[in-house]
Amino acid sequence: MIRIENVSFKHRTTPILTDVSLTIPKGGVVALIGPNGAGKSSLLSLVARLQPLQAGAIDIDGLPVDTTPGRELARVVAILRQDTTVASRLKVRELVGFGRFPHGRGRLIEADHAIIDAAIAQFDLADLADRFIETLSGGQRQRALVAMAFAQGTDYLLLDEPLNNLDMYYARELMRSLRSVADGKGKTVVIVLHDINQASAHADRIVAMKGGRVVADGTPAEILTPETLEAVFGFRMRVETIADKPFVLHQL
């Protein structure tokens, strides 16, 4: 369980998050949605202790993120940031392999190699495994980074706009992979999404943020209504139900 209690965060004097409290139970896919600048990425990076907590408390499975040793947390939670650039000349297999670093401190045993191979296969990277990251397209690189986060093998997976650069096929594949690790292995996935319909199709729960606060929280059917969406994004959009799921026609 991730527990976020009364978290506020400022960048210099600008408030980014104001008194956010949220409980995410173990298992399932939670989508964070909201307009640009709502504080979604900041919340995710605070949970992943990439930035120091200023006010409030966050713990994951009872481990406070600000005082638990980084090495211990790295076996519990993995994060993929949205603006990750890899300037190093590493091969795909090497990069994915570094996802195992928190477990063996760089020494890979048989079990590690099996996990690395599985992550490479899962994201269709087998043909690219011996290529340098810098020679890949944006989408291929994104898949390699997601595979690295998967290889870390943590119970909690935080993904900040992982669908960036991915085409429709791989975006759907990634969402289905997330769904299957949540269902099959009881993992908890928290994912920032701009494509609301992906959230509708694959998430159990949607948390909507605006102006540094949580403004709506519920199942896709509860959140994806014209009224709530207008309150979050500031304009009216049509919502249709297809295959029992709400789909938002925000392009119209």
Partner: peptide, 21 residues
């Protein structure tokens, strides 16, 4: 510390994410 150096080259956030001080 060779592996840690490789990870550091990936940046501060990637390093912290992998549990490096």
């Amino acid at each position: 510390v060779a592996d840690r150096l490789t990870i550091m080259a990936l940046g501060r956030e990637a390093s912290i994410g992998l549990g490096i001080d």
